[in-house]
């Protein structure tokens, strides 16, 4: 197709603007605190790794980082296990109330997390899930299960139904077909869905912070408590911020070709 002459310039200018705040934070993270609050300078005068050193040696920092990784991973696996059969059912069968159920799932994506704060807090305390990794993983299923069902269903509907029928004629049972033929066929969709579940659980703070206190405290919550008597430790905060971007930045490379389709809930 014909391109506008200035299209390239507009796009790369936009991309540069997008990166500016990120690079600035990275710049903060490698400066000593004295330099941050001292004279303003575009490029760090002295480069130091002491902020990262603190991050990796202070247990409140690295243990909450691990907490976040543990509960997001649990949530990703749980959401996928629950969502896979359901997405298959929605894409292949008609059953009583299927359309209503499908749209009702999306309304859970519309629920403001703030609405669920109090009940989660109280229910989790009464059943002993408060401040556990499992608890946070379960709570995040609130928005990740509907998301996973929607994305997977979109991808699965793109696979012709004739494949199911041929397999049935060849004598495969439904579970046999599902695990040996269907799952390998949609592995890229599973990868994309896993990525999105991981991401949305990783970026969420409000619920995770409310139902944890010490043992399962997410990195995001630790970051909101950096204000000490000496003021905000900007360097350390920036270093922690850089660390939280890394998992997403690594994972995104693997799903880059599907990411737009994933954000469109598998429908483009």
């Amino acid at each position: 197709m014909r391109r506008l002459p200035w299209a390239r310039t507009v796009f790369w200018l936009y991309a540069a603007t997008l990166m500016l705040p990120l690079l600035w934070m990275f710049g903060m993270s490698i400066r000593p605190n004295a330099d941050i609050l001292g004279a303003f300078s575009l490029v760090p005068q002295r480069v130091t790794l002491e902020n990262y050193e603190t991050f990796f040696t202070d247990s409140t920092w690295y243990s909450s980082y691990l907490n976040s990784i543990v509960y997001t991973s649990m949530n990703t696996v749980m959401s996928l296990v629950v969502a896979l059969p359901a997405a298959y059912a929605f894409s292949r069968f008609r059953f009583a109330g299927d359309k209503h159920l499908f749209f009702w799932l999306l309304t859970n994506r519309m629920a403001p997390p703030a609405v669920f704060l109090l009940p989660f807090f109280q229910i989790y305390q009464s059943v002993g899930l408060f401040d556990t990794h499992l608890g946070v993983a379960l709570a995040h299923m609130l928005f990740n299960v509907p998301l996973a069902v929607w994305i997977l269903e979109g991808f699965m509907s793109g696979i012709p139904r004739e494949i199911d029928e041929t397999a049935a004629i060849d004598g495969y049972s439904l579970p046999g077909f599902f695990f040996r033929i269907f799952l390998p066929m949609i592995r890229s969709a599973i990868g994309v869905t896993a990525f999105f579940c991981f991401m949305f659980s990783w970026v969420e703070l409000l619920i995770a912070r409310t139902i944890t206190s010490v043992d399962a405290k997410p990195i995001a919550a630790t970051m909101t408590r950096t204000v000490s008597a000496a003021g905000v430790d900007w360097g350390l905060l920036a270093a922690a911020g850089v660390m939280t971007i890394i998992p997403g930045a690594i994972l995104i490379w693997f799903v880059r070709n599907y990411i737009a389709k994933g954000f469109a809930l598998g429908r483009v």
């Binding site: 990120l22 600035w24 969420e204 995001a220 905060l237 997403g248 995104i252 737009a260």
Partner: peptide
């Protein structure tokens, strides 16, 4: 694609932190 998607993958409170730093008159570029 990767550059554009990057902001979406940052924890929301870190987005807050980034702008808390970036928009400050004394230490932020913006």
């Amino acid at each position: 694609l990767v550059l554009v998607a990057l902001p979406l993958l940052i924890p929301w409170n870190v987005v807050g932190t980034i702008w808390q730093i970036f928009a400050r008159g004394d230490i932020g570029l913006g």
